[in-house]
């Protein structure tokens, strides 16, 4: 009984997400691309960068990257803290 409920949950989740993606745009034909076209057209002029992805990562969405670096920093601190030696500072 409980197993049946669990399986039903997974299947329902699968079908709902599939339903959601079924109403998404067709693969390879984005519905709108205003923001990304802006990046492709202006990244070279505004940030003097050939790699548009890098210009997004470090300039347009630099704050995300700061967060990402802090996430890594956080994980490092967590791992080092968990494995710290007993009785040592």
């Amino acid at each position: 009984m409980k197993l049946g409920v669990k399986i039903a949950i997974v299947l329902l989740l699968f079908s709902f997400l599939l339903m959601g993606l079924g109403f998404m745009h067709k693969y390879g034909v984005p519905l709108k691309s205003d923001m990304d076209d802006y990046f492709i057209n202006h990244a070279q002029k505004e940030t003097a960068t050939n790699n548009v992805v890098t210009s997004i990562v470090f300039d347009y969405r630099g704050f995300d990257t700061l967060g990402e670096a802090s996430v890594l920093f956080t994980a490092v601190l967590g791992v080092v803290m968990i494995f710290r030696e007993a009785g040592k500072k």
């Binding site: 995300d64 967060g67 990402e68 996430v71 956080t74 994980a75 601190l77 967590g78 803290m81 968990i82």
Partner: peptide
């Protein structure tokens, strides 16, 4: 997306802190 990133920062930091008294 920035919200998601900060959500993860807060979560991961709290994972570490909860496990402080290991």
């Amino acid at each position: 997306f920035n919200f998601f990133v900060f959500l993860e920062i807060a979560s991961i930091a709290s994972f570490g802190l909860i496990a402080y008294r290991r």
